[in-house]
């Protein structure tokens, strides 16, 4: 699965009553921005490597957080990461992200499931951790 075939596959597909709006992100790396209907606020970014399909959504940046409650937030993020379906929490640069990695042999159904779950999880996480924003 590469980003091109993914763009074609997701364009007209529906999964669990959702549709997908796919847009390539300009640049050297093959990156797609996917907007899931009903969860438009948290777009999911997909990149495909030799070993995995990486999907991630941004939550918040370090400077948006209340520095005094950072430790508590981290603790809670670690705890919630385990039971959260198909997603894990992480950090890249200053961005806190929720992400999921799939095998490159995954089919469209698995990828769509991941995208829907990730976009919904991102919304739930934002609302859950709203109190930690500065």
């Amino acid at each position: 699965m590469d980003t091109q075939s993914l763009t074609l596959a997701l364009g007209d597909a529906t999964h669990a009553g959702r549709t997908f709006d796919v847009m390539p992100v300009a640049g050297d790396e093959p990156v797609l921005q996917v907007t899931v209907s009903g969860a438009e606020e948290t777009p999911v970014y997909i990149t495909v490597t030799d070993t995995q399909i990486l999907c991630l959504a941004y939550l918040f940046d370090t400077q948006e957080l209340n520095p005094e409650r950072l430790h508590e937030l981290h603790e809670n993020m670690l705890r919630i990461s385990v039971p959260m379906p198909l997603s894990a929490l992480g950090k890249t640069g200053d961005h806190y992200v929720v992400y999921g990695a799939l095998s490159p042999t995954s089919g469209t159904a698995e990828i769509m499931q991941e995208l829907v779950t990730l976009a919904e999880n991102a919304i739930d996480l934002l609302q859950t951790f709203e109190d930690y924003l500065a």
């Binding site: 300009a26 640049g27 050297d28 790396e29 990156v31 990486l54 890249t92 640069g93």
Partner: peptide, 10 residues
């Protein structure tokens, strides 16, 4: 890859 990807998104 993750660093390059996020930089590109940003």
């Amino acid at each position: 890859r993750v660093l390059r990807t996020t930089a590109q998104i940003d």
